[in-house]
Simulated scan of single mutants.
Amino acid sequence: MKNIYLVIAAISLLFAIRPVSAQHEDDSANTSELSYESFVTSAKPIKCLYGYAAEKVGDHDAAIAIFEDCIERFNSVYSMIWLAQIYDTGVGVPRDEKKATALLKRGAMTNDEAGYSSLAQYHYGVALIEGKGTPADRAAGEAWLTKASEAGVQEATDYLSSLPPSSK
């Protein structure tokens, strides 16, 4: 989870570089190479962080394009989680819980160096238990939550603790 602090710092930097009010300026005349717009078509892995900035300023199309490309190019679990959230909430796209859960499952099954796989495991485990975008499967959900808990995701530990005893 040490990497989460690096991500937060990077995101803070993104907002310092690209304030929300700047999205209303004429970007066609002078787009900074540090703006998220310049990363939509970039081949640099850092673009995945810029997808978050694009989503937070309401540019859903750019965020989706960035996250989809990061998933295709880099198998970015970070992008899978964010894109899953977009589809789960239906912000900027039609709501699609099945697509969201499929992205979380893919992320849960990926072993990334940054540690986002454990977050995907947590979210996928919850989806399985709650039957969100997938048929409910408590045993499989508990297995994914246990894996996330063992990787240090406190939310997974808390969720497991809050479950009523199984009626097996």
Results as ranks from 00 to 15, higher is better:
Thr31Tyr: 08
Thr31Cys: 06
Ser32Lys: 10
Ser32Met: 04
Glu33Gly: 12
Glu33Trp: 15
Leu34Met: 13
Leu34Ile: 07
Leu34Ser: 14
Ser35Met: 05
Ser35Asp: 14
Tyr36Phe: 13
Ser38Thr: 04
Ser38His: 03
Ser38Phe: 12
Phe39Met: 12
Thr41Asp: 15
Thr41Asn: 15
Ser42Ala: 14
Ser42Tyr: 12
Ser42Cys: 13
Lys44Cys: 11
Lys44Pro: 11
Ile46Thr: 14
Ile46Val: 15
Lys47His: 15
Cys48Pro: 13
Cys48Met: 15
Cys48Gln: 15
Leu49His: 13
Leu49Arg: 08
Tyr50Ile: 02
Gly51Lys: 05
Tyr52Gln: 09
Tyr52Arg: 09
Ala53Cys: 04
Ala53Ile: 07
Ala54Ile: 09
Glu55Arg: 07
Lys56Tyr: 12
Lys56Ile: 02
Lys56Leu: 11
Val57Cys: 03
Val57Ile: 12
Gly58Cys: 06
Asp59His: 03
Ala62Met: 01
Ala62Ile: 01
Ala63Ile: 02
Ile64Met: 09
Ile64Ser: 00
Ala65Thr: 13
Ala65Gln: 14
Phe67Asn: 04
Asp69Pro: 12
Asp69Cys: 05
Asp69Met: 09
Cys70Trp: 07
Cys70Glu: 05
Ile71Lys: 06
Arg73Glu: 13
Arg73Met: 09
Phe74His: 08
Phe74Met: 02
Phe74Glu: 05
Asn75Asp: 13
Asn75Val: 04
Val77Asn: 05
Val77Phe: 07
Tyr78Thr: 00
Leu83Ile: 07
Leu83Met: 09
Ala84Leu: 07
Ala84Glu: 08
Tyr87Met: 01
Tyr87Lys: 03
Tyr87Trp: 08
Gly90Pro: 08
Gly92Arg: 07
Arg95Thr: 14
Asp96Thr: 03
Glu97Cys: 01
Lys98Glu: 15
Lys99Glu: 11
Ala100Cys: 11
Thr101Leu: 10
Thr101Arg: 09
Ala102Gln: 14
Leu103Trp: 12
Leu103Lys: 10
Leu103Phe: 15
Leu103Asn: 14
Leu103Met: 12
Lys105Leu: 15
Lys105His: 14
Lys105Gly: 12
Lys105Asn: 12
Arg106Tyr: 09
Gly107Gln: 11
Gly107Leu: 05
Ala108Gly: 10
Ala108Asn: 10
Met109Phe: 02
Met109Ser: 14
Met109Arg: 10
Thr110Gln: 07
Thr110Asp: 05
Asn111Ser: 10
Asn111Pro: 01
Asn111Arg: 08
Asp112Ile: 02
Glu113Gly: 00
Glu113Lys: 11
Glu113Trp: 02
Ala114Leu: 12
Gly115Leu: 05
Tyr116Leu: 01
Tyr116Ser: 00
Ser118Cys: 02
Ser118Gln: 09
Leu119Lys: 02
Gln121Met: 00
Tyr122Cys: 02
Tyr122His: 11
Tyr124Leu: 02
Gly125Asn: 04
Val126Ser: 01
Ala127Pro: 04
Ile129Arg: 10
Glu130Asn: 13
Lys132Asn: 14
Gly133Asn: 03
Pro135Arg: 11
Pro135Asn: 13
Pro135Gln: 13
Ala136Lys: 06
Ala136Arg: 08
Asp137Phe: 03
Arg138Ile: 11
Arg138Glu: 13
Arg138Gly: 00
Ala140Tyr: 00
Glu142Tyr: 06
Glu142Arg: 13
Ala143Ser: 08
Ala143Phe: 01
Ala143Tyr: 06
Trp144Asp: 00
Trp144Ser: 07
